[in-house]
Design a protein around this nucleic acid. Structure first.
Lengths: 156, 156
DNA sequence: TTAGGTGCAAACCGTTTGCAAAGTA
DNA sequence: TACTTTGCAAACGGTTTGCACCTAA
């Protein structure tokens, strides 16, 4: 559309930094190639990929990013509070951009997908339980494992 | 004390099978030496030992029980529903005899100890949340991480 | 007697790390 | 430039497994 006046300007697809990359820069992290790549993948991911999946997606952009580099990047992003790490019972950890609201996950047992939810009632109960036991709640970890109500596995 | 009448009877400390060993026999498991040993350790444990601790305690009774055997035994006991395996975020899994009532754990961050608790309110909420999201709850996993209210870390 | 359990060592999986080379600010 | 990050390969911690031997039933 806007090719009329500056037709000879090279069409280098200028990189639009996403929220993750911005957060990294705000934290003063050096934005190397691998970091930009991983940041952009995380920004455009609408699932909860693990290291191997992230490495696979990164390889499509830059085939020489090593797995250990992905691990290291995820580690610093997590330490800086930019992404959350979700440790399941089995398999590799999953990652997601940190959300404003803390939340828990329901794992769809049929697909492995995550559904995020937040319940203030739960939080209240956790605090109440801890207090009752003589403790001050610091954090918690919850996963709900469930099957879809409709369709195949409804009346089981 | 009672050495008067049958003084010459060999004093072989007759093995009194605990609940775990009984449960194993009821499940038809072969009670080999290592299994009897691990079962008795689990029966008398009032904590939540990991494989290495169990192996250590087993070695005090029979120094040639191998670590892989302990792993294998814990695996079958877990599969048979005789013991529960607790997978924390870090470190080796912990084990406890299965209780009649399902329960969750509060982890004392100062000591690493577990406190077991059961909350029907929580169960109700979990079911309600799952249903609201269009799912049927199958299981859940919860750990509360907390510090003691009294003494050192109270007003933080 | 025989299906099953054991010890050992090697393999496994997810993750971290030591190092020398490459890159960022 | 000075200091950080990277790639590679090797090591890690927790757990499983292949195999030959052993043992409970």
């Amino acid at each position: 559309m806007s090719t009329s006046q500056q037709a000879l300007t090279p069409v280098t697809r200028t990189h639009i930094p996403g929220k993750i990359e911005q957060a990294c820069r705000e934290k003063g992290l050096r934005m190397t190639g691998p970091r930009v790549t991983i940041a952009s993948i995380l920004d455009s991911a609408d699932d909860h990929p693990d290291v191997f999946e992230l490495h696979r997606r990164a390889a499509l952009i830059d085939e020489k990013i090593s797995l250990s580099t992905v691990y290291r990047i995820l580690r610093v992003l997590n330490k800086e509070g930019i992404i959350d790490r979700i440790d399941l019972n089995e398999g590799p950890a999953r990652y997601e951009p940190t959300t404003e609201q803390p939340h828990d996950h329901l794992v769809n047992l049929d697909t492995g997908d995550f559904i995020e939810f937040r319940s203030k009632e739960l939080d209240k109960l956790y605090n109440k339980i801890a207090r009752k036991l003589g403790f001050k709640l610091v954090s918690h970890r919850l996963e709900l494992y469930a099957t879809p109500l409709d369709g195949e596995s409804s009346n089981n």
